[in-house]
Design a protein around this nucleic acid. Structure first.
Lengths: 138, 138
DNA sequence: GCTTGACTTGGACAATGTCCAGCATGGGGC
DNA sequence: GCCCCATGCTGGACATTGTCCAAGTCAAGC
């Protein structure tokens, strides 16, 4: 995790308490938090941190490619710190739980040129939906 | 399209002017509208229709399986009337344009049991991202 | 330890969506 | 064809998520 902080510093980031806290929150074992959840956890560590700062910082992390924005079908965007290993998502349609998954094959190669309509395709996002074991039990 | 109205009537829908208008809007050649766009077009045909009704109707159509909710990364959900033919989406990262595409292969079979974590997986959604010809030109 | 410009703050605002109490009306039963 | 009433609609208040900005603060190079 501190390697993330190092990378950011190397990129000319000014290292503030707020940014450190946001990075720490994302690096925790809680994956796929919403911006609001990130804010809530950040406040726990640094009470005066503002919502705007959390949004800004998340946005910066995303554009630096350190964090991915994931939009499953919930209302809020979620942030995925696991940006350096390509992976897809498995979402519980009931409780909204998200797991990272690593399918075999490359969906990119499943899109023939005739289906690209002149687009320059650079990325694929795959979301599997289903019911998680917990919800299935209930 | 009138077949949609028939199907809905068959399911016990009360056929009101508002619902007809929403169905007509979705059936037009404008695919992937946001709820707000649907509302705007509906108002053009039936000035007094309220936002709440449009949201309600869209929600009902979705739970009846007549229309799909698509969340690309934009803020607003979009509604896809093409619910009866499985397909995926190609989104322009710049202007947000969306096209339906039909990849070869079935991503569902790319998810081994070991990667399902006990979920009952029922659905896959694939979103390709890139730059559309128009934006590439600009 | 100064200085400076990048960062943060808090609050206002915007966009999207939900809810509700009360009114309107489609369509079955006559 | 007409009535009735459950179902649907309305408009507006509210909730949630996200963006913007002016003014104050602080990290880091000197």
């Amino acid at each position: 995790m501190s390697d993330l902080l190092e990378r950011l510093r190397g990129r000319g980031w000014r290292m503030t308490a707020q940014r450190r806290v946001v990075a720490e929150v994302l690096a925790g074992d809680h994956v796929h938090l919403t911006a609001d959840e990130v804010h809530a956890r950040a406040v726990a560590k640094l009470p005066e941190i503002s919502r705007a700062t959390v949004y800004n910082t998340l946005g910066e992390l995303v554009s630096l490619g350190e964090v991915l924005e994931v939009s499953t079908d919930k209302r809020a965007k979620r942030y995925d710190p696991n940006a350096h290993r390509p992976h897809h998502h498995l979402v519980c349609a009931q409780c909204g739980a998200i797991r990272d998954v690593h399918p075999t094959g490359n969906p990119m190669s499943d899109l023939p040129d005739s289906e690209r309509f002149g687009f320059t395709v650079s990325d694929v996002e795959v979301t599997y939906r289903g019911i998680c074991p917990n919800c299935a039990k209930a």
